[in-house]
Each structure stands twice: as structure tokens, then as C-alpha cells.
Design a protein around this nucleic acid. Structure first.
Length: 114
DNA sequence: ACGTTGACTTATT
DNA sequence: AAATAAGCCAACG
């Protein structure tokens, strides 16, 4: 490997994001802002999504599908295929999601409590 | 080293 | 309610 090829054990910041997402229990979801806040500030929310984007192509064992936006809605860069998979995965965990990919954030929002 | 980018968020119009 | 603007920060070319 010349330089690239950075799996889950990539750069520092990303690694922290993956660690937090992995802590999300099954049947619950979290938002980019929440994770970002745990990492330090809500301002890094963008990087949370970015880190997850890199994950999907690496197939890491990070439950990226449990991470949604503060609007309680699933938003994906992909036209559909991946978004549907995410919704399906959440439904499989017992999360009710609307046809628009919206879910009751106030009910499923995971509070680490730590 | 600099500039662009981006699965976000919040406030404002 | 929906659209627009600004903010903030790390990775990549």
C-alpha cells in the first residue's frame, strides 16, 4: 500500500466517530449532531456523516444505519438504494419509519447517558 | 501549504 | 412550512 487504504483504523477523528457509532444499541438511533457533540462539538457533525460515508464503501462493522440527521429523517447522497437499506435495517431493529424515511426521533433517539 | 468539499446544524427570511 | 445563509472543521487533491 502506497499510502491510501485506510480501513476502520484510519485517521484519528474518523476512528472516534466509528467508535461512537458502534456504541449505539440495537433498536435505537442517534443523530450526527449528537455524536459530534460527544466528540467535542456539534460543529463536527458534518465530519460524522463524512466518516460514515467512507465506512459504507469499506463495509465496516459500524451500524451507520443507526445514524440519522437531527430532523429524524434519513438523508442520503445516494439516490435510493442505500437509503432503502438503511430504513430496512432500522425497521428490522424495531424502529418504525414512515414512508418518507421519517421516524419518531424523540422516541428512538439514543441517550448514551455517559 | 492552500482551497474545495461535505450522509450537518441552527437561525433567519 | 419551506428555502436561504452562515458557521465550523477535518480529510483530500
Amino acid at each position: 500500500m502506497t499510502s491510501t487504504n485506510t480501513p476502520i483504523v484510519g485517521p484519528g477523528f474518523h476512528q472516534r466517530v466509528y467508535a461512537q457509532v458502534r456504541l449505539i444499541p440495537r433498536g435505537s438511533v442517534s443523530t450526527y449532531g449528537d455524536i459530534a457533540k460527544r466528540l467535542g462539538s456539534v460543529k463536527v457533525a458534518r465530519h460524522v456523516g463524512w466518516a460514515l460515508a467512507a465506512l459504507t464503501q469499506s463495509n465496516a462493522e459500524v451500524p451507520w444505519h443507526r445514524v440519522i440527521n437531527a430532523q429524524g429523517q434519513i438523508k442520503g447522497p445516494i439516490g435510493g438504494i442505500q437509503r432503502v437499506v438503511q430504513i430496512k435495517a432500522l425497521e428490522d431493529e424495531g424502529v418504525e419509519i414512515g414512508a418518507d424515511g421519517t421516524l419518531n426521533l424523540q422516541s428512538y433517539r439514543w441517550t448514551s447517558g455517559n
